[in-house]
Design a binder for these strands. Sequence first.
DNA 1: AAGGATTCCTGTTGGC
DNA 2: TGCCAACAGGAATCCT
Length: 270
Amino acid sequence: MPELPEVETTRQGIAPHCEGEIITKALIRNGRLRWPVPENLPDLIQGQVIRSVERRAKYLFLNLDAGTVIVHLGMSGSLRVITDNSPAMTHDHVELTLGNGRTLRFNDPRRFGCWLWTNDSTSHPLIRALGPEPLSEEFGGALLFRQSRGRQTPIKSFIMDNHVVVGVGNIYANEALFKAGIHPKRKASRISLDRYHRLAEAIRETLSAAILMGGTTLRDFVNSDGKPGYFAQSLLVYGHGGDDCPQCTLPLKEIRMNNRSTVYCTSCQR
DNA sequence: AAGGATTCCTGTTGGC
DNA sequence: TGCCAACAGGAATCCT
């Protein structure tokens, strides 16, 4: 379940093997992803050089001269660089053969991911309205405070809204709210600037720590097992409903918000 | 228009 | 033990 740290780790892992390489062949085995993969995608990209691999939110961009391939890993997607000619496995839906003999392979059992083509990535409908990157200068408590005025939605939904800030998935929303001592159901409009500073800091900390961890575990994407590294990190509350709160030792409460698992401490989070 | 519900999908898990 | 329902989650889109 790729959250932003895993997507960034993926980018760092594949970029050295892709950048500057020509796409000699593009193969779509199963184009029925979140949206149909354009049938003419191979024609559009074969023979072109991958100039750079970028990330925006949880989207990856393969920047070519004529445009950009937009890739999303969805829930269960992964990108791996294959060096030998190991046979494709089940759920290997898309693959690019590169000039250096390596293969970029996209595997996605649940097919929530996407492979799309655009001539202009910044103005693409999926990209245009995205909020700031959580690790950018632009993001912080002031921005959260400003954006939250008049918003009645619970704070957990608010920080998971990609128009507010990108890359905060369910797991890290739970973690950040615990670190900031904020109750997940509190209305976004009823949180002070001070507390938003704390929350923004908690989001930064959680995400950057996970990126560092993913970076160490997934250092080598070539022939890697493709196992996400961030699961190894110690999550404070997510997946620990009923356990003792790490701070006050009261049992952590687990509820469902918007059909998503939500874990918090009734004493430490207000 | 904001906010909640629904939707896509399959591997894993838990209950009977 | 075996089967099947429930669950997991990103995020666009639909609905109220």
